[in-house]
């Protein structure tokens, strides 16, 4: 049965207004401005993810710290960020903070370029948001490493930062890399939300075209295709990275997961142990 002979159906060919040549034109010959939007989307995603990983590392270390104020701050941060919509966070950082007179993002002149205030706010919001998710991923990765590893490092006289950098984090990486790849996939798509604060990324560039051409269907197909290209390309890169990490650790496999759990000693929380001497 084809659409055309669905007698009395809701659909009929006459209703579908699709101009293929318009679609192909905008897909294959995007304007300069549109390509800038694409570049901005990619740049925002990379910046948001990179700074997000840094925030995530800081928050993960804070969560694992002995000092309870640090732990509480980190816990509060992830709780708030993960419990509220990213869209709300973006508007909050840019518009609400300014409206309350708390903080206003100003354009920064960098010679020929201007680092626009709303782009700064977008990066801040995206990385703050990403940091909360990365914190959980990194914390879980660190906790997946056999505690005996950190103890061996300590017993050799390493300080906490040394044991983290040289022993624990390289091993946590294999637990962190796959979810990190998925986070970047989400990040590529989540950048579209900063269109609400007027950042001319891919989606807002599309909307601008829509309002001048009224070709909603074609243009949304175009923008969807671009996002799909971005995420698909990333997917290919991701599987290469994962294969690399899988290979480099296969030969170095220590005790299996089950063995690790068999000899597992939970690290005692610092504040559970009586301190008085």
């Amino acid at each position: 049965m084809t659409l055309a002979n669905m007698d009395g159906g809701v659909f009929s060919l006459a209703v579908i207004q699709f101009d293929p040549s318009f679609f192909w034109h905008y897909l294959l010959q995007p304007s300069q401005g549109y390509l800038q939007g694409l570049a901005l989307t990619f740049g925002l995603a990379v910046a948001g993810q990179t700074i997000g990983v840094v925030f995530g590392l800081l928050a993960a270390f804070a969560r694992l710290s002995r000092a309870w104020p640090l732990r509480s701050i980190a816990r509060g941060y992830t709780w708030i960020i993960r419990g509220t919509p990213l869209l709300v966070q973006i508007v909050f950082v840019y518009t609400a903070l300014a409206a309350a007179g708390i903080f206003r993002f100003h354009d920064i002149d960098l010679g020929p370029f201007t680092f626009a205030g709303n782009i700064q706010a977008a990066i801040v919001a995206l990385s703050l948001n990403e940091g909360a998710y990365m914190a959980e991923i990194i914390r879980a990765g660190i906790l997946s490493v056999d505690p005996g590893q950190a103890e061996a490092a300590k017993s050799l006289g390493m300080t906490y930062p040394q044991s983290m950098r040289l022993v624990v984090l390289p091993q946590a990486a294999r637990f962190v890399i796959p979810p990190l790849g998925n986070e970047f996939n989400s990040m590529l798509k989540n950048t579209s939300l900063v269109s609400v604060i007027g950042v001319q990324e891919l989606l807002l560039s599309t909307n601008t075209l829509v309002s001048s051409t009224f070709r909603v269907f074609e243009l949304l197909l175009v923008v969807a295709t671009y996002y799909l290209l971005l995420t698909t390309a990333w997917g290919l890169v991701q599987s290469r990275i994962e294969r690399y990490f899988g290979k480099s650790t296969a030969a170095t496999d220590g005790p299996s997961f089950l063995e690790r759990f068999a000899g597992f000693r939970l690290p005692i929380e610092a504040d559970d142990a009586p301190e008085d001497l």
Partner: peptide, 17 residues
């Protein structure tokens, strides 16, 4: 701790090295 060597029941060698 640098002055005290420790050998563990489960070796605890660094598997990535």
């Amino acid at each position: 701790r640098q002055e005290i060597g420790m050998v563990f029941q489960r070796f605890n060698l660094f598997p990535h090295k």
